[in-house]
Design a protein around this nucleic acid. Sequence first.
DNA 1: AAGTGGTCTAGACCACATG
DNA 2: ATGTGGTCTAGACCACTTC
Lengths: 237, 237
Amino acid sequence: MQNKPARGTPLPAYEQIKRHVLAQIESGALKPGDVVPSETEMVKEFGVARMTVSRALRELMAEGVLNRVRGSGTYVAPRQYESTVLQIRNIADEIAARGHRHTARVLALESSEEPTAVAALELDAGPAFHSRIVHYEEGEPIQYEDRYVNPEVFPDYLAQDFTLETPNNYMVRLAPIQRAEFRIYAQKPDAHVRQHLAMEIGEPCLLLLRRTWVGKHVATSVRLWHPASRFHLAGTV
Amino acid sequence: MQNKPARGTPLPAYEQIKRHVLAQIESGALKPGDVVPSETEMVKEFGVARMTVSRALRELMAEGVLNRVRGSGTYVAPRQYESTVLQIRNIADEIAARGHRHTARVLALESSEEPTAVAALELDAGPAFHSRIVHYEEGEPIQYEDRYVNPEVFPDYLAQDFTLETPNNYMVRLAPIQRAEFRIYAQKPDAHVRQHLAMEIGEPCLLLLRRTWVGKHVATSVRLWHPASRFHLAGTV
DNA sequence: AAGTGGTCTAGACCACATG
DNA sequence: ATGTGGTCTAGACCACTTC
């Protein structure tokens, strides 16, 4: 570890150690539940004082990345839900939490060269992956999902069976979501969506737009339509 | 500061210092923008090492309570918005942030014995305060606010002029919101709301329901209607 | 020049978990 | 008994702001 920062103030040692651990988690070298090297080991590895290692690991714990147990060790924390605040959880989990049965119908699962898809993912060039899926709760349609997926982040997306696992679950399982951006609208659905959601004419939709990032890439961009009569968002702050 | 924790591990010194500062902010002895005593001063005051004070203040900065400027000093951070995640900020601030003019029209400001009001605030008995206000952005109606307020928490609520300051701002100014619960719906407005929001027949509303707690009391329960064509919610996680 | 916060060290004592 | 993390000290050097 560079003890005396040369010039331009590179990065403090504790910050370098944090990034080193984060990089190992992102690369998969460290998985949830794995033991992270102890403070003593890192002191030797990086050639710094124990307080410095301690600060790095303590901050990673405060950020929810690690769990530390006195007397035992430091562990990689289990994967976080995308959001504990605005509970846009996996629709299948939500339905299961209500004790109901979730089913899904895949309308489309394809590669797309649409400029809107390429733009939504902030790609330089196509193709983008595209899926359209209707989710049912106890047989009633509750969500129409129109999703674009970055092939660089999820190269095997098209080979999945999304009647068995939701795209959301698949992606959360493979890559840690680092940032999400959402917008919520009340909107009248077009005829296509209205039909698939079995909605009355004139009934509004709750429309949720969301883009999520993995690293520097937009991993996915999704539009979720929900019939207003059967769905709302809720949460606590 | 008790250097050797007696027994039962009372509280680490850095934690005691954090609470001391927080208590001063809560009591009003320290206000947003005020200078907090420097590390050197606190070292003398509490009789601890500088690293200990440093940690306390650093953590308070990470929690958004303090701002620290190298070479200058430590300052009490301005009051936080209710939520940085789901940006349900003061509507007046949002409008101002867009460089637009906010105006408000107070339709009602009264004491109410309605059972629904009493129930919404989880009160044992009435009365509850009640207000109905329409908010305008550049003269266009953008939010219909129907609010119940707990008289125990805000006894002077009825005496305010809500054309000058929004209820939200008034309440955030007087009491720190500790918890909020929200639900978001897409809903067709009733004739009354539709008229006040100057909406077309058939246009949906984005309806936001929110209850906020101060201590153990429900401080306020509010329903906010927004015309779908002119409003959406947005945020990042 | 003086004061501030940012970082780091090389020790130390402790509570706790695990074998 | 050993190793882990949790805390703390008494110094130090530095970058930065303010006067």
